[in-house]
Design a binder for these strands. Structure first.
Lengths: 208, 208
DNA sequence: GTCTATAAATAGATAGAC
DNA sequence: GTCTATCTATTTATAGAC
């Protein structure tokens, strides 16, 4: 029974944070909607930041899965497509983190360090995938270009849903689709002709 | 004398917002540091959001200057370099807006609409510059590629300083330099060979 | 584990004197 | 224009009963 209330708090907190933005959700709001007392909430968590840290741990675990690279073979364009999908879905499900990223990071040294390391792992992963594409002769790029491209992909993926939200996009699926398309368009000019055509076909098929 | 206190409030608010993040600066903090009373501050501004709206107006005017396109001739790579510099400087000087962008936009319909229109103007401006480069045969890109590229440049420029901050970069000038390099690296694969070499030279010269 | 009651701190904002 | 004093509301957090 201990786990049950604790888990309900985490689940609802995540939903409210995503819906209204973390700064606009108080511990009392959470308790109210769960129809438990504030005291009860504070029995399960030290404070609001404790809740956020637990949610961050879930996020980090999931993102680490999403950035995993296929083992034992070179990557192809479809791998990247699938990987981007998992990454954007994860970002969407924990979008409150991204909405107020700098505030959340400034409040918790723990989250700041974990996020910073995760960003590093993600950049390394992107770099390795790109190198795989070069090795598979799917794309052509210098070492400098691969590094700059990996960084740009990270920035784009990290902030695309924010940008898309500012522009007024409400539909999750469409926001994710367009996010993937934008990353792919960044890759396109480095692809060899055959793969560039292939990508173009994938994009067409994917557009709604 | 009326303008003096009002302007001092705006000036210090901007400095404190940028330094500590807008949510962490209260009207009382501002009054304290100016050594005026809270009541005096509220004589000059209706509330905190009023201060933010006035600062946003300054920001919008400056950004509209920064995204202006050279008239009467086709753009070249140096134009873009200079333009990016002015844009990043402007973002830096009003970085509090970007740090808590979605919260600030969600609180003020006025700022939300102005920012949304500014984003549109900036995208149009970027698109026109890219078309100019295509027309000048400096770069080669399809209409679709130009549109996707313009969007990606906007996302990158909008969030680069945030990203750079998350990674721990503290030096303004270096953050701006690297932001320009990242945009240029996105452009590079579309450039014709001669201009690509030219860009590479510019980048080398620019790196510290 | 959960509740009630409430403390303690902070933030935004206003009234009225000078 | 500016200040002092203060009010109201909100938020986080805890003590102690059940």
């Amino acid at each position: 029974m201990a786990r049950k209330t604790r888990d309900r708090i985490l689940e609802l907190s995540l939903a409210l944070f995503n819906e209204r933005g973390e700064p606009n959700v108080t511990t009392n709001h959470i308790a109210d909607e769960l129809e438990i007392s504030p005291g009860n909430l504070y029995y399960h968590f030290r404070n609001k930041d404790d809740i956020i840290e637990q949610l961050f741990a879930q996020y980090e675990e999931r993102m680490d899965q999403a950035i995993l690279i296929p083992e034992g073979r070179l990557p192809n364009l479809e791998d990247i497509w699938l990987q981007l999908h998992m990454i954007y879905e994860c970002i969407w499900d924990f979008r409150f983190l991204y909405r107020d990223l700098l505030d959340i990071l400034s409040r918790s040294r723990k989250i700041r360090m974990h996020f910073s390391r995760l960003l590093k792992r993600a950049t390394d992963s992107a770099t390795e995938v790109l190198r795989g594409l070069v090795a598979a002769e799917v794309m052509r790029a210098s070492a400098d270009e691969v590094q700059a491209l990996a960084t740009n992909i990270l920035v784009l993926a990290t902030f695309w849903l924010n940008y898309s939200g500012v522009r007024g996009e409400k539909d999750e699926q469409e926001a994710i689709r367009s996010g993937i398309r934008q990353v792919m368009m960044m890759l396109a000019p480095f692809l060899r002709d055959a793969e560039r055509v292939h990508l173009h076909t994938l994009c067409q098929a994917y557009a709604r």
